[in-house]
């Protein structure tokens, strides 16, 4: 059975709502004092984790197509990419508004002392132009350079990992899991590229 335009519209709405659920849980938890002893950290890490998870999902769509021949996952590429940006923006917003309390003095003091925060900011700056040019209109206008620009996502994946590795205190289990996933997804692309070239 092939799905029509209408079906896909409904499926997209369902995926959209599912993707918003982590946001809903975290905000609900914050309002109801259910985020434990350090709610700012819980929000901050929660949004950061989900940005990274959506990045993994987004990076998995092309390899799924390559390996299985299924093309429908590609329909969700834009949405997944924008959710990466959504959660990364919230992650940054929690840092600036809640952790630093919008204090320029705190920003000036704390950010330069933290290589991992600088790496996080760099990652956000890499995501920003992709989010801005994510519309169909921009895609058309930029033509081939749109594709080049959006290859920035590979760089952002790597800087996000470095950001994570640099912040943890000794136990690298979590960033290693993400490194394995992102490494694998980028690795598949390299293998495919080499085969096509060779």
């Amino acid at each position: 059975m092939t799905l029509g335009k209408k079906h896909w519209a409904v499926i997209k709405i369902v995926v959209f709502i599912l993707s918003l659920m982590p946001f809903g849980w975290l905000i609900y938890g914050a309002i109801n004092d259910q985020l434990g002893a350090n709610p700012i950290e819980a929000l901050h890490f929660g949004f950061g984790d989900w940005a990274l998870r959506f990045l993994c999902i987004g990076l998995a769509l092309t390899p799924v197509k390559t390996l299985t021949g299924l093309s429908w996952p590609m329909r969700f590429r834009r949405m997944m990419g924008l959710f990466v940006f959504f959660y990364a923006s919230l992650h940054l917003l929690v840092f600036i508004v809640l952790d630093l309390s919008l204090s320029w003095e705190a920003f000036k003091d704390e950010v330069p002392k933290s290589p991992y925060i600088l790496m996080g900011l760099l990652t956000f700056l890499l995501l920003l132009p992709m989010a801005v040019t994510s519309t169909k209109k921009m895609q058309k206008r930029l033509g081939r350079s749109w594709l080049t620009l959006h290859r920035l996502v590979y760089v952002a994946g790597l800087t996000a990992l470095v950001h994570f590795f640099w912040l943890v205190k000794k136990d690298y289990t979590e960033p290693l899991v993400y490194a394995a996933v992102i490494g694998g997804l980028l690795g598949i692309r390299i293998v495919v590229y080499c085969k096509e070239e060779g």
Binding site: N38, I40, L43, D99, S103, A106, D109, E110, Y116, I117
Partner: peptide, 22 residues
């Protein structure tokens, strides 16, 4: 004296509201 990876000038007070500055 900061930690090599973060500032030690301020601290988050556990139990305070999310809008309370460090």
């Amino acid at each position: 004296v900061s930690h090599p990876r973060w500032s030690q000038s301020r601290e988050r007070v556990l139990g305070s509201s999310i809008f309370t500055p460090k």
